[in-house]
Amino acid sequence: MGFNFSENGFNQLLESLNQDYQIYAPVRKKNKDSFSANDLITYDLIKSLEEIELTVKSKYSAKEIVFPIRETLFHFVEGEQFIASDTDDKYIIFLRPCDRNAFKRLDKIFLENGPEEDIYYKRLRENVKFFVIECTSGFDSCFCVSMESNTVEAEDYAAFLRFEENGVSCEVNDQDLAVEFSSQAEEIKFEPQFIEKNKVEVKLPDREKLTNEVFEHQLWTEYSQRCIACGRCNTSCPTCSCFTVKDVLYDENKKSGERFRRWAGCHIDGFTEMAGGHNFREDYGDRMRYKTMHKIYDFGERFDFDMCVGCGRCDDVCPEYISFSKCINKLSTIIEEGV
């Protein structure tokens, strides 16, 4: 079902949705990025259309809403464990097709990999409705088309929105929301559009030809010199899902505390360090190789699609100007030409 809203109309819709949902969208936080006087574009709660930042790619993805950077697993008091009870909060997340597809990757790990579902992820994920933002021109570093994550299927979203000069056109799939939409807008025909060509194109290496011989290639030693292991590529990535589990004791009472998890990144020191100090991937170039292979090969071997969605955030945030898309293309060339 397609609808057309005026700006006012859409704001009224948001207002009514806000009764039941916490609505997250990319926003602009004035002067809040790391460098002074730079704005931070990131996800936060919104109440109106004007707050949504559509002109610039967000530095972080919507991942942190469903997989919080730090999340309490349970509290303990005198050895007894208490899990925080589920909340009834429901969420609407505005995001582009690449980021919607990133959630498919997270779903694989948290809900399908291993013998059990991750209940912490699941209890948030179940309460999310996706509002996909139509994205037909992308940004400079995007390569979603190459990663086949430029499109979404109708079942992947509750609503699909086209932001126009004087309002919003959209399609609603979610029956629960259809009433809210239809009561405030005129019905139109709506056909979602997707970007068909990015400025950056990536050629994935031929899976058949990709052997471990390439692990020794000097391609990676270049990154040993360039990478500084800051982990920004991991934290900005919408599909990186690794975490570390830690305990803390509350200062007041040494008998109570919490076990929590927080994001981990394969580029950051300590990721493979075992108790006693042995480290399986000390070299930064090896970390780049490991991440690259995970994003464009290993994940795909385990599941049906590659992990990387081509959002290009890792390129945008790397302080050493390491480009992931460039790395993939270099790898493909090496494979084509023979290692």
């Binding site: 002067n31 809040k32 990025d33 790391s34 460098f35 002074s36 931070l40 990131t42 530095k59 972080y60 950077i69 800051c230 982990g231 920004r232 991991n234 934290t235 830690k246 305990d247 803390v248 004791l249 200062d251 929590f260 994001w263 990144g265 950051i268």
Partner: peptide, 28 residues
């Protein structure tokens, strides 16, 4: 205890911690 503590007496407000942080956990 798995968190960063800032000694306000020693801090010179240079903002390096903000620049270093890969998650914007340090707000400007």
């Amino acid at each position: 205890q798995e968190r960063v503590l800032r000694d306000e007496k020693r801090c010179i407000g240079c903002g390096e911690c903000i620049l270093q942080c890969p998650t914007n956990a340090w707000e400007r």
